[in-house]
Structure formats: C-alpha cells, structure tokens
C-alpha cells in the first residue's frame, strides 16, 4: 500500500509537469499580455501612454523574453515557492492565495460532505422504496436540482432572503468581521454564512449522486448474496445496510476525486454571484486581465488539489473493496 502511494505520488509529479505546460500555453494563447490589456484600459480612460514607458515595463516584468524563457522562469520560481507577483493587485501571488485558497478548500470540503450526507441516504431510500410516492417526489426534486443552473439558484436565494427576511446572504462573513483577524466569533459568523454557497454549489452534485446511489443499489438488491443473507434469518434493515448498501457505495467512493473539480469550477460563478472571498473571482479576474502569474498559480494549485483528491478516492476504494488491490500479486 505504502509502495503504491509513493508510486502514485511520483506519477503526480509527471502529471503536474505536463499540466504546467498546458496551463502556461493556455494562458499565453490570447493575443497580447498583461501590459497590452493595461495600456488598452488606460487609453480607454483617456490617458496617453508613452511607448518607451511600456517597453521599460515589459522588460521589467520579463514579458519581452521568449515564451519558453518565460515558462522556465515561472515554473522554476513556482517550485521554489515563489509564485511571482500579480500585476493587477501588485502583490505577491502567494499572499493573495494564502488569503483565499484555504477558504476555497474549506468550501469545497464542506460542499463535498453536504453532497454525500444528503445524497446517500436519499438514494438509499429511493432504491428501497422504488416507485413509491416518496421516490417519485425525491426524483422530481432531484431532477429540478440537476436542471437548475447554480447561479440562478443563488440569485433566487439572495432575492428571497433579502425580500422576506431582509438578510443579505452574500459573502462568507458579516461586514463587521471581514477585516477582523481570525477568532472564534469570526468562525461562528462564517459557519452561519457558509450554508448558502454550500447549498447552491452542492445541489447539482447531490441530485446526480442520488441517481447514482439509487441505480447502483437497485442493481445490488436483487443479487444472490442478499437472498443468502435473508435466508440466514437477518432482519431486513441489518442485511440491507450490511450488504447491498455497503457494496453500492463503492462506485460513489471511487468518484469522490471527480467531484472536486466539479465543485471548484462550479464555485467560480457562484463565488462571483455571492461575492465570496474564494479563488473563483480571483482566477476569473486574472484571466480577463491576462494576469498570468496569478492565473497560472491558481490553476496549478487547483490541479494539485484535484490530483490529491483522486489519489484519496483511489486509496479509499482499496479500503472499501477487498477485490481491488494495487499490489502486484506475489
């Protein structure tokens, strides 16, 4: 097992190298660079910009070097922990990420827990009571949840709460806590705000996992080993949870890693709508401004998280299903 994990970590390094190249190319794809965008916006405001000044700036930021040199500069610094400076914020990228990345991770993990805690019991119920009123009702709600765009749900919630309760549900903190240092009160305040984005981001994922859980359990319920357990004299409740439910959960466990990118990308739009201080709005702005060090670093960090998520779900799968083994047979 340890061997396997180490081997996987090694593969992750290769994946990340390949990924960094792709990320860099994509960021470089739009014509121009940060300065072109910057100059364009200055000119739009009526300020004239001196060409010589621009050239000087370009040289200072290293933007006049060839793309390969630029990549090399970026990636070697990245490995050393220096993610460069954001042009737009004029602050080190590391500092910006330190503010926002932990909140993104926390939001993602909370959403993941929410999705599984809600979806698995509902999926189990739907399968056990197939074609009952409850099953139909939950399926309808599930499909609506799946079909509703997240940002739409966010807007509806915001409107609803503002109109009827006079509460603004945007953000992760109340205004008085935003600039405060971390304290227990601030954490409590955050938890009160957290449920709205968790609900909004988690809805679509919940709906699809309900479907997966339901169909996976329906497949298992008719299997021979269920009849065997019944023939032993076990109670329905015990045998259902010990055998078919336990086995039907395997495909869900193995896809935890795939949920993370969904959540992270789904989070971007929601974070903008709900003005959450996460990485979502940051990367959106960075891509618009061609703020390449910021954009590249965020994408790299999110990729690393996704790879770790996949590894975790692979390890979990070995733990829950004894038929799967990554060790070479002796």
């Amino acid at each position: 097992m340890l061997n396997y994990v180490l081997r996987r970590l090694l593969y992750m390094v290769f994946t990340l190298v390949a990924l960094s190249v792709v990320v860099f190319i994509i960021i470089q794809l739009p014509p121009g660079d940060y300065l072109t965008t910057y100059v364009a916006s200055l000119q739009a405001q009526g300020t004239t910009v001196d060409d010589q000044e621009v050239a000087a700036l370009r040289a200072r930021y290293g933007l006049d070097a060839s793309p390969i040199e630029q990549y090399w500069l970026w990636i070697t610094n990245f490995v050393r922990g220096d993610m460069g400076r954001s042009f737009a914020y004029n602050r080190p990228v590391a500092e910006l990420l330190a503010d926002r990345l932990p909140l993104t991770i926390m939001l993602s993990v909370s959403t993941l827990f929410f999705v599984y805690l809600v979806a698995i019991p509902i999926g189990v119920y739907s399968a056990l009571r197939q074609y009952s009123v409850g099953d139909y009702l939950l399926s309808i709600i599930g499909f609506i949840g799946m079909a509703t765009p997240n940002f739409m749900l966010a807007l509806i919630l915001m409107y609803f709460f503002f109109k009827y309760f006079g509460i603004s549900v945007g953000g992760l903190f109340s205004s008085e806590y935003v600039l405060e240092p971390w304290s227990l009160a601030k954490v409590w305040d955050m938890l009160q705000h957290l449920w709205v984005p968790v609900l909004v981001i988690g809805t679509a994922g919940t709906a699809s996992i309900i479907r997966v859980m339901r169909s996976s359990l329906l497949d298992e319920l008719g299997k021979q080993y269920v009849v065997t357990a019944r023939a032993k004299g076990l109670s329905e409740r015990r045998l259902t949870f010990k055998y078919p439910v336990r086995i039907a959960i395997n495909p869900i466990v193995s896809t935890i890693g795939w949920q993370l990118p969904h959540i992270v990308s789904g989070e971007t739009i929601i974070a903008i709508v709900l003005s959450l201080p996460t990485t979502g709005p940051l990367i959106y702005g960075a891509l618009l401004n061609q703020d390449m060090f910021l954009a590249g670093s965020i994408v790299m960090m999110l990729s690393i998280l996704t790879l770790i998520g996949t590894l975790i779900s692979d390890i979990l799968l070995v733990l829950v299903d004894p038929r799967i083994s990554f060790e070479k047979k002796a």
Binding site: Q224, Y225, V227, T228, A231, K232, G233, D321, P322, R323
Partner: peptide, 21 residues
C-alpha cells in the same frame, strides 16, 4: 426459522457470498 430450523444453499456459490466480507 430461517437459518436455524431450515437452511438453504444455492446454485452459484460465487454469487451467494457478499464479495466484500
């Protein structure tokens, strides 16, 4: 009665046991 008084064995031994226990 199931299991204690009257027990049963099945055709497919591979399928009759849970694969994860």
């Amino acid at each position: 009665i199931r299991g204690r008084e009257i027990a049963m064995i099945f055709q497919e031994p591979m399928a009759a046991f849970s694969p994860v226990h």
